[in-house]
Computed example of a mutant assay.
Amino acid sequence: MIVDSHCHASDKWYEPVETLLDAMDRNAVDAAVLVQMLGDFEHEYMLKAARRYPGRFVVVGGVRIERDDACENIRRAADAGLAGVRLRPGGRSPGTDPLALWRCLEELRLPISCVGKAADFTSPDFTALVKALPGVPIVLEHLGGLARPDVGDRSKMAEAVLELAQYPNLHLKLPGLGQLAPRMAELDPRIAMPLQMDGVTAFIDHIITAFSERRIMWGSDFPPVASREGYANALEWTRLSLGHHPASTLRSIFGETARRVFFRD
């Protein structure tokens, strides 16, 4: 089973869920995690999609963490089918307990998809948060920020991100290679993977060794991936680059990890 851990679909922005389904079906992707885009807090479109296509989707929604009723809102959304929540690493609740919503998610056993820069994830403040919440899975998007264009010195930041592997509730989303390797200047049809891959495979191998395949999950970043290598290549080229790993490792990264964390069946 192949599970895409990071997709966006909306009736307001990007593409509708049917466009994603078409890409999934053409590439034999069995299921996907619908992650709410930043700045949107209405879950109903995605929840309806999950009900309309049973078994294909789970929903990770946004929340206005600054509101006093954030926990109550998430409890209602969880009752309606929400499978996780998307937060920024610096998101804090009002009142006497800045981690109130995070603790609520731990109580509800709702995983957190965390979006931010590598510098945010490697800060002492975030480390303290992770230590305080050992019972909730926290999934760092875009390889813990290492795949973002604002990462700066990736090698230096990678050392700090790898230090986070000591916390067993932390997971990483592995993106398509177009986020990690630039395109070749000339697209030669004889080259199966036209990316400048110098050091990228070894870099990913190092991350897999640190976190293990049980805490890494592939995510396409649909539909922004269309402006990079495209959906099919984001899946196939990533699998190709990891082809030297055992089949059990590939099963975990391309399906089992995401299913275990986000799917409740």
Rank of each mutant, 00 (worst) to 15 (best):
H6C: 04
H8W: 02
S10D: 01
A23V: 08
D25L: 13
D25R: 15
R26P: 09
V33M: 11
M37P: 07
L38P: 13
G39T: 10
L47Q: 11
L47D: 09
A50Y: 03
P54I: 10
F57T: 02
V59S: 04
G61K: 04
I65H: 14
D69P: 06
I74S: 04
L82W: 02
A83N: 00
G90W: 06
D97R: 06
D97P: 04
P98D: 06
A100Q: 07
P111I: 03
D120S: 11
T127D: 12
P134I: 08
I138C: 06
H142T: 06
G144A: 02
R148T: 13
R154M: 14
V161S: 00
A165G: 15
Q166F: 10
H171N: 14
Q179P: 08
A181F: 03
P189S: 03
P189V: 08
I191R: 06
A192N: 14
P194F: 04
D198I: 08
F203A: 11
D205F: 05
I208H: 01
E213R: 02
E213W: 00
R214V: 10
W218P: 15
A226Y: 08
R228W: 08
A234D: 09
R239V: 15
R239D: 09
H245P: 06
S248Q: 07
L250T: 07
S252E: 13
G255C: 07
G255V: 09
E256N: 10
V261Q: 03
